[in-house]
Design a protein around this nucleic acid. Structure first.
Lengths: 118, 118
DNA sequence: ATGAACTATGAACCTTGGTTTACAGCAAAT
DNA sequence: ATTTGCTGTAAACCAAGGTTCATAGTTCAT
């Protein structure tokens, strides 16, 4: 598969594919070059990229993903993932509090709006 | 109150106070200048800045806060806040899905890790 | 076989939310 | 009265996650 096809199938711009590659986020097993130096992607890269998108959306940084990919021990990966799960749980609690704050704002209980122009 | 006091009481670096000011995030009612051109903050700015921090942490951008502050009609503010509440709810749903994804990853059900080195 | 479309590269650029720097005036303590 | 510290400014810098640009080779359709 050439870059254009991967781009269309994943929705990621080609520039982003190259950016990920530059960041070492595309393992060699997924990517080689043809006789013209054009990139050739394996079809498995599609699933992989979906996972990468998911993990980035979840709040993993590119650096973290690289660690996750290269981390040799299973237990270290496990630790990273569990930390992220904890982080997500904390975030959920914060979001609940936030909703309450915003609802108070709607009802005029917060004072932020009293500072607004009208 | 001078900048240093506001900084200490809010925990925001002075550079951040100035940054917010540059971004028009500090209404004039909270800020004037003394005879040396030093900033003079009203004490009410403290609550206001707490709210600003909260809203930024919630995922409002500075641009959105500026809109929220300047938006003339109450109903428009209400709309913005309700949209953000909806956004938070969607985010919570996504986080739940994410947790599931990560738990699957832990259990080896996801294929991301199968692409990892070891 | 020639132009349009696709691929490659490195480098510069972008946005967001700030922080740091360089330089200068004012203040408070010794 | 001078050193130390706080205040001011504009402008440069930072990290993340990409995108755009300039330039050049390749391939497909007509």
């Amino acid at each position: 598969m050439k870059a254009n096809e991967v781009s269309k199938l994943t929705g990621l711009p080609i520039s982003t594919l190259r950016f990920y590659e530059r960041k070492q986020l595309i393992p060699e097993q997924f990517l080689s070059r043809d006789e013209n130096n054009y990139r050739v992607y394996e079809k498995e890269v599609l699933e992989y990229l979906q996972d990468v998108r998911m993990l980035l959306t979840l709040g993993f940084s590119i650096q973290e993903l690289i660690l996750l990919i290269n981390e040799s021990s299973h237990i270290e990966k496990k630790t990273m993932v569990m930390e992220k799960i904890n982080y997500i749980q904390a975030l959920e609690a914060k979001l609940e509090a936030s909703k309450k704050f915003l609802e108070d704002l709607l009802e005029g209980k917060a004072n932020f709006q009293t500072h607004c122009k009208s």
